[in-house]
Structure formats: structure tokens, C-alpha cells
Design a protein around this nucleic acid. Structure first.
Lengths: 200, 200
DNA sequence: CCTTGACTTGACCGACCGGTCTATTATTAT
DNA sequence: ATAATAATAGACCGGTCGGTCAAGTCAAGG
């Protein structure tokens, strides 16, 4: 029985929220420590650097995301095409909740970090890219199923899955810039119209 | 007649490139001054603050963008639907050029700033939002024309235009995260499949 | 009991941040 | 010529940045 995990996970949780709601560069370690009620020394006991903390935050969030949002949104019980609508709804309610609570839309943590850090840190970029690849695979599996059941005509499911992920990130970006979660609701359903044909 | 010093525009140009290739927070004023061969005092003679510089950069880029990239990409001589393909190509070549030159994809300055600053600075968010609105209007005019000429069936052109803009930003985000401009070429053409029907 | 090692504390570091200030030099209007 | 003003120069400021470090505390294992 260690109390060890508590400190580390508190830092992680606080950092995640702060990075998500603001940005990597804008959040300082001292601020994180204060919010997590931890001293600088303890912080550096668990994380070698701010960058490593960000990497850990990405992994942590990706994990939660895969087992929470994604697992729920891509509900296997639903017909594949309906899953897309369900996922859009889930994205909306998530952003809406944050907007109501904090007065502003945080957007997608991965998208935020990707645009902020991709040109500066290749390791972080690769990590974020891997998260996107996993998300794309979820889309892809859904599309494959829809094609298999005949709900959708044959297509390039991998490329279309990437397109859908891009569209999702795009509408979240636009909604965040407008600070109106409803943008997700209005534009979201059009994700089903995206199609990339198979190349022959 | 002023000495027509190019000091201000040198600062603007340097800051634009740096903000675009890195991020707002990551670029310091001293660094901008060094690169522009200008002293701190001169900088603060022309710009009250770093934030005001960013605002000026947005305006400057939006202007260049409207008269350069957009005016070219949305070539009125082309049939409306082909304009979309042409625009995707233009986006690709622009990013490709930067990637070849600097070894990395800067992405879209507006999208970058939007995700970094939207939750921190409402004025900047509004400014970015206005730029996006203008871009959407370009899409919308193109769609309206396509509908008028019968090239496309009637639809909600305003919402579809927003969707296309979101998709464009999304594929640029994804391409930047992969550091592969080609992603724009592969996913881009699917922008034409996006459709949001008119609400009755 | 004593050692070990994970964990915590908080003072401290140099570098750099955005921004201010005074002094000086060009340029223009009178 | 002179007064006013635009522009430049660069030292300087308090504060914060990410990160270090020596000195502990404390629980488990021998």
C-alpha cells in the first residue's frame, strides 16, 4: 500500500485539464504543482521534465479516451452507420459540458497539442500521430462493417476513415473558434457524406 | 513624405513566419527583433504589445491570403466545382513548398492560432473567427454558383461551406501531424462529397 | 534497531520573458 | 534655423520560466 500513486496521478490529472483548457506553453510547472498541491521536487521525482509530463498526459488521455469516449461512442450494439451519429453527439455533449462549466470550449486535446507542438517536437508529434492512427482505425472498422453488411457501398475505407477523422477535428476546431459547441451538431452529421472511392 | 521605413513591415513579415512555423507563445519579442534587425525600442514604437503584433499579423496574413491564395485558388474562370479541386491543389503546393524549404509543415496560421489562443484571448478568437467567416463565404459563393448553374443539386450552401472549411482545416491538421503534405492530396478531393441538405 | 530507497520539502539558479525608460538621431513643418 | 515629432538605440526592470539540489521524512526489509 503506497500513497505513491496519488501524487503522480494528481499531477497528471491537473496537467491534463490545464493543457487541454489552455495550451502546453501557457501552463507552467509551478502552476501545476500549486493546483495539484505538490512541491516542485515531488514533481521532478515523477517526471524528468515538462515535456515528459506532456507525453505522459497524451498517453493517459489516449487511454481514457479509448476506454471511455471511443468505446462508448463507437457502440458495437448500434448499426455501424448510426455509430457515426452517436459519436458526433458524444463529441458535442462533451464539449458542451466543458463550455457550460468553464465558459469556453477546450476542443480536442490531441488536435490542440498537434498544432502547437508538431513543428517543435518530433517525438510528441509521432505520439499524437499514433493516437490519430488508432482513432482512424476505429472509423475504419466501423466503415468495413458497414460495407460488409451492405449498409454502404464499397469504398476506400482507410482513406475515408482518415477523411472522417480530419472532418471531426476540423469541426471541433471551427466550433472552438466560434466558441459554439452547437457547430458540432450542425456540421457533424455531414460526416456520413464523406466518401473516398477505391483506386483501381 | 515619410522615410517610409520598412521597419514595421519587416517586423510583421518576420513575426508572421515565426508564428506560423512555431507558435505564438514559443516566439519571443527579442527573437523577432533580432531576426528583423530591429531594436526593442523600435518594436514598441510600432506595436503596443506582443498581442497587438499578433493581431496585426492576423490582419496582414488575412489580407495577403484574400488577395493571393484565395483569389487565385477560387479562380472565377474555372467552373465552380473544379475550383474546389484547384484550391486543394493550391493548399498542397503551399504546404509542400514550406515542408521542402524548412523541413516541416507549418499548417494553417489561422488554425494554429485559433487552437492556441481561442481559450485565452477572446479578441483574437473573434478576429480569427472573422477570417474563417470570410473563407466560408468564398466557399459559399462557389457553391451557390454551382447550384445556380445546375452543376450541383440544391443544398444548404452556407452550412456546406462551413463543413468544407472545417474539412480543409482538418486535413491540414492531420497532414501537419503526419508531416506529410501528401495527405492533403489524398484526402482533399473528398471535400466535394460533403453535403448538408436544406432544412425544411 | 538500522539501513535503504522511495518520496517530499522548499530554497535556489541562470536564463529569458514581455515591457519600460531615457537618451539620441533623423525627418519634417514652420 | 528651429521646434516638434517620428524613429532608433539599448540598458534596464520585476517576474516567471524550467530545472536543480541538499536536506530531510517515512515506511518496509533485514
Amino acid at each position: 500500500m503506497h500513497p505513491e500513486t496519488d501524487t503522480r496521478s494528481r499531477i497528471l490529472a491537473v496537467a491534463r485539464d490545464m493543457f487541454h483548457g489552455r495550451s502546453y506553453a501557457d501552463v507552467g510547472i509551478q502552476e501545476i504543482c500549486d493546483a495539484a498541491k505538490v512541491q516542485k521536487g515531488s514533481f521532478y521525482h515523477f517526471f524528468p521534465s515538462k515535456r515528459d509530463l506532456a507525453l505522459a498526459v497524451i498517453d493517459d488521455m489516449a487511454d481514457d479516451w479509448a476506454h471511455g469516449f471511443v468505446a462508448e461512442a463507437f457502440d458495437q450494439a448500434l448499426p455501424p452507420v448510426e455509430r457515426l451519429d452517436y459519436m458526433i453527439d458524444a463529441a458535442y455533449y462533451w464539449q458542451k459540458a466543458s463550455a457550460d462549466l468553464e465558459g469556453r470550449m477546450p476542443g480536442c486535446l490531441f488536435g490542440n497539442l498537434a498544432l502547437e507542438m508538431s513543428t517543435r517536437d518530433d517525438v510528441m508529434r509521432a505520439r499524437l500521430n499514433a493516437v490519430f492512427d488508432k482513432a482512424r482505425d476505429k472509423f475504419r472498422a466501423t466503415l468495413d462493417e458497414a460495407v460488409a453488411t451492405g449498409a454502404l457501398a464499397a469504398m476506400n475505407t482507410e482513406a475515408t476513415a482518415s477523411a472522417m477523422l480530419a472532418y471531426l477535428e476540423g469541426i471541433i476546431l471551427l466550433a472552438k473558434t466560434r466558441n459554439e459547441p452547437e457547430v458540432i451538431l450542425v456540421l457533424g452529421p455531414a460526416i456520413k457524406t464523406l466518401r473516398i472511392e477505391m483506386s483501381h
